[in-house]
């Protein structure tokens, strides 16, 4: 394992899971990502990332109720674990730190 460092896409997926709260399953995550980033989120990619996040212990999952829209298959709902929350916070902190170091004028002139 690569430790708790988050990749950019991993961070996005993790944030989406947190944002979707009780409705975070693969297809919904894909749709939400697409809506927010404007990029096409491929199901295969999202699946791989979810799988990796779960291996790292940043999310946990449980199977929900069977629904008709899924041909009688159950949804797997994801939730952010405390380790996940820590990783998100750490990432935010790093960013905030860096933002605060930029002097007000520096970005304006670009």
């Amino acid at each position: 394992m690569k430790g708790t460092n988050l990749g950019e896409f991993e961070e996005l997926v993790l944030l989406t899971i947190a944002a979707l709260v009780n409705d975070a399953y693969s297809v919904a995550i894909c749709d939400e990502l697409e809506k927010n980033t404007g990029r096409a989120a491929k199901l295969g990619v999202v699946h791989a990332v979810l799988n990796r996040l779960e291996e790292k212990g940043l999310v946990k999952s449980k199977l929900g109720e069977a629904t008709n829209t899924r041909g009688g298959k159950r949804k797997r709902y994801y939730a952010v674990t405390s380790a996940g929350k820590a990783a998100l916070l750490k990432a935010k902190e790093v960013r905030d730190n860096l933002w605060s170091m930029i002097p007000g004028m520096a970005l304006k002139n670009i």
Binding site: S26, V27, L43, H47, N51, L63, T69, R70, G71, K73, R74, K75, R76
Partner: peptide, 14 residues
């Protein structure tokens, strides 16, 4: 992983 994948693909299929 099977059930999850099957479900997802089914949803997209529909």
């Amino acid at each position: 992983l099977l059930e999850d994948l099957q479900g997802d693909l089914y949803e997209y299929f529909q």
